[in-house]
Amino acid sequence: MKSDYQGIWVFAEQENGKLHPTVLELLAKSKELQKHNGEKITAVLLGADVSALADTLFSYGADAVLLCENEALRSYSARPYQKALTQLSEKYRPSIILYGATPLGRDLAPRVMVSLDTGLTADAIDLGFDEDGVFYQTTPGYGGKILAHIVILERRPQMATVHAQICSPIEPIADASGELIVEKLNIEPDGDYEVLETRSAEKSGESLAEAKVVVAGGRGVKTEEDLAMLRELADLLGGQLASSRPLVDNGMLPHDRQIGQSGATVSPDLMLNIAISGSVQYQLGMQKAKCIVAINQSEDAPIYDIAHIGAVTDYKKLVPALIAKIKARKQ
C-alpha cells in the first residue's frame, strides 16, 4: 500500500567524515516538499565514526537522523551501501529518497532501485508536487532543449538523484536538535571490490572556479585546430579554456575542464561561450558569470536566454578576427 510509505529521506553522503555539499541543498529542497506533504525529513547517515555529523544535519533542516555506523561502511563501496539502504528502507518505508547526483550517488542509487524494485529519476533539476498532488522530478533531455516531469506513480519509495546547486542550503539553525535513530545492521565488507588508491586529478590548467575569464567551447568545436584557436583566445585574455560536456565526452578535453553537469561551477567576470547551445545543466554551471557572451550560429540556442552579448555567426570567422583585434590592441 502506497499509504504505508511516509517520510522524505535524504542520503547524507559523506567521505572521511565530511558531508558532501549537496546534502545540505537536498535538505533545503526537502523543506519545500515538506510544506506540501507535511512528512518528516530524515537524513540517512551511513559510515563509521560519523555521529558528529548528526548535529550539522539537524541544523540544516533534518527532523531526524537515521545513523548506521559499521566498519563495512567506513569508506564507500557499492554493495555494502546498497544493502544498508535497502534494509533501512524496507524497515522504515519512506515515500521519497533523494541522493545527490554525485559520482557516488549515481553509482549507488541504481543498485538500490533494483533491490527495492522501484523507480529512480536521474539528475533531477527540480522537484515538486504538481496540480494533481503528484510528486514529480524535472529532468532535461536532448541537451536541455526539452524538460520532462517524471513521476513514479505506484511504487514506493519514489527515488531521485538530484543535480547540485538547484537550491541553496537554509540558514543553519543554532542549537537545533532532532530525533537520533541509531540502527545496527549486519553488513559485511565487499571482498570483491577494493579502492587501491585515491590521488588528486592531474590538472590541465588552473582551477576553473577561480578564473576571471573563461573561454568555453561546445559541440560545434570539431577539430584540434578549432580547439587550439579557442585556447589561443583564452591565453590572450589571461583566462582558462573550458567546455560543455561534448568535448569531454569525446576525449578532446579532460574532465576538469567541464562546466555544468558533474563538472565545475564558474563565476568569472567574462564568460565566452563558443558553439555551445547551453543546456540547462550547463547554464547551472555558469549562470553567475558577470558578463556572458555567446557565439552560436543558431539563434534559437538556449544560451541566448542568459547571454548579455550575443553574436549569431560562425565562430570560425569571428574568433580569428577577434584574436587579430586583441593582438593589435595589446601592442
Binding site: 524494485d117 522501484t118 523507480g119 529512480l120 529519476t121 504538481d130 503528484v134 514529480y136 532535461p140 536541455g144 532543449k145 526539452i146 524538460l147 520532462a148 516531469h149 517524471i150 513521476v151 513514479i152 506513480l153 505506484e154 511504487r155 540547462v280 556572458i292 555567446a294 538556449p302 541566448y304 536566454d305 542568459i306 547571454a307 548579455h308 552579448i309 550575443g310 553574436a311 549569431v312
Partner: peptide, 22 residues
C-alpha cells in the same frame, strides 16, 4: 515493468535577459 513514467514534456521557460546582439 517500469515504475517511472513521463507525465509531461515541455520546453524550458525563456528567461528575460536582454541580450544585446552584435
Amino acid at each position: 515493468g517500469s515504475p517511472s513514467s513521463t507525465k509531461k514534456v515541455f520546453e524550458p521557460e525563456k528567461r528575460n535577459t536582454d541580450t544585446q546582439y552584435l
